[in-house]
Design a protein around this nucleic acid. Structure first.
Lengths: 323, 323
DNA sequence: TTGTAGGCGTTATCAT
DNA sequence: ATGATAACGCCTACAA
């Protein structure tokens, strides 16, 4: 292996010259370049990136904060980020937080420690104030519609996506509409809540608190929803479900209880992951991979300019057979 | 922010002392420790990890090589690795390769460049010889049953899992058995192939080349399988399917063609991801998250001892309604 | 076009 | 218990 100094010696040049060929700088004669390249090859040498990072003051690594890796939504987001990162010679430092605020803080600290050049926050539980603090000093991208101007964001317009969903249900004759949401306190969820109440109000539909199911993320949660649904005296006949996974759980458990979909309960889901096709789920297609790509691009722009306008992505209805 | 030197000055101690409190070394008086901690707090100081890494010669980062991030199998593997890594204060450097050998090489180079302390190879296309080269110098874990002793591995015993599957189908009266496999050239696939032919032979069942479907990874692939299946003059009446995703695709497309499962075609899948419950898939449960955890643990042992015995994990049958 | 020397921020060795 | 000082390996003025 060796280091740059040894390469220099064996090639009969200075370390500067070696560094130059390593970094494709101009101003190095062809024969010297060749000589250097040769000894590099002979010694099977590789740069020590830690030294490079230290010297340069940056790492070409981007942090990605997700609550759960194995949840398809985040897998897809990661896919998009990874694709864009790779193209730009960036590598990904992945932080799984389980929505544990302490772990989120640890991830954010990597910004200060210069282990990563920036951070894409796919979802979080920590307060925005904390994130803003870090965002003042480091490039941070958030995947939700934040109020503050000074924090970069790429997000799906969940408000209009939800309104669109409500309209579609209404057009199909459903008047008793409820919904399942991921985590009620998240910004994305609040937007959906707003859309829900405003949408129903405009259509003059009845709104019932018991038709709102919180903390729905997994298939298990979907099953729980059905159980709660069955306990209800007055039941909704249609549900907006904020993830295909949850919808899948609802379908599973509904089948067990001889509940027919959509006759007894219509389901309009969000995501359009492959699973939704297998289940013939009517769903809103969310451009998640695209959001990942855009997040990385925004990060790069942020590194240069310092301020960026938010990017808003739209959802698209995919009609199958659960509505 | 500042650096260790400034902290030293302002605290009236030497950099060594600061380093000592930073690393919880003994031999530093309580008052000095306090003073240091205070100025650290006041300056909002964080270590520069690049410097730490350079100095220490290691990074506390582990590389994880996957072909696709968004495929549930790898998502789960990653989940397990992430969980174990976090517990040991390691962070994950994720490399998505798309089975592009060049990208795989780039990832492996990060070992030489000391960006990562080791690498968990979840799946790869590069030749084993190449990987062995790196494994001689660096801790590498592979998730498949490799022949060579000198390369650490954690894997699921696909041979017995496949034999078990065949036996189960046979017990249920199926005599015309085919299978879908991920990538025919991978070691895991070869093991399954071996199990398939040996298993059918022992049971005295007919073996047909046309009943083997290669390159099956996604839902789309599953649909393709059904189309090919329909073209067959002599069709199998049961299929071993090496992933729930593919099985889901088969079910989707089968439904479209009025093919009944399991009457017209029985399906025994592998994975037991949540989706398989929603689809009522009979499947072999694969301990993937566990494999991820074990991979990381093995990596740590490897760092210390230098040689480790392979770890073999078993699959478990979950009966639902597609057989 | 090339080389010298100083800096990046820590840790580790060796005195004291 | 504490502190100089030399690594760690690379980049980058600046000088030539």
């Amino acid at each position: 292996m060796g280091n740059i100094k040894k390469i220099a010696e064996l090639s009969g040049v200075s370390v500067t010259t070696v560094s130059r060929v390593l970094n494709n700088h101009p101003y190095v004669k062809e024969d010297k370049r060749k000589a250097v390249l040769e000894t590099i090859n002979k010694l099977n040498y590789s740069q020590n990136l830690n030294a490079v990072h230290l010297s340069r003051g940056k790492t070409s690594m981007i942090g990605v904060m997700v609550p759960y890796i194995a949840v398809p939504y985040y897998g897809n987001l990661l896919e998009g980020i990874g694709e864009a990162a790779l193209k730009n010679n960036y590598s990904i430092n992945l932080f799984q937080t389980n929505y544990d605020e302490k772990k989120e803080m640890e991830a954010l600290e990597k910004l200060k420690s210069k282990q990563v050049d920036g951070m894409i926050i796919c979802s979080h539980t920590a307060n925005m104030d904390i994130i803003r603090k870090y965002a003042e000093e480091h490039p941070i991208i958030v995947c939700e519609k934040v109020a503050e101007k000074n924090i970069a964001a790429v997000y799906i317009d969940h408000y209009s996506a939800f309104r669109q969903g409500i309209d579609f249900l209404h057009e199909n004759g459903y008047k008793k509409i409820g919904y399942c949401v991921n985590r009620a306190k998240s910004l994305n969820s609040k937007l959906r809540e707003k859309a829900f109440y405003e949408g129903l109000a405009e259509l003059g539909l009845h709104v019932a608190k018991e038709w709102v199911f919180d903390s729905c993320l997994t298939i298990e949660d979907g099953k729980r929803v059905v159980k709660e649904f069955l306990e209800l005296e007055d039941r909704p006949n249609a549900l907006l479900v904020t993830s295909d996974q949850v919808a899948a759980g609802i379908m599973t458990e509904a089948r067990r209880h001889k509940l027919n979909i959509p006759e007894d309960l219509a389901l309009l889901s969000y995501d359009n992951h492959p699973i939704s096709e297998a289940l013939e789920l009517t769903t809103m297609d969310l451009p998640i991979v695209e959001m990942g790509r855009r997040s990385f691009q925004l990060f790069q722009q942020l590194q240069e300019k310092k301020q960026e306008t938010p990017i808003e992505l739209k959802a698209k209805l995919v009609i199958r057979s659960t509505v």
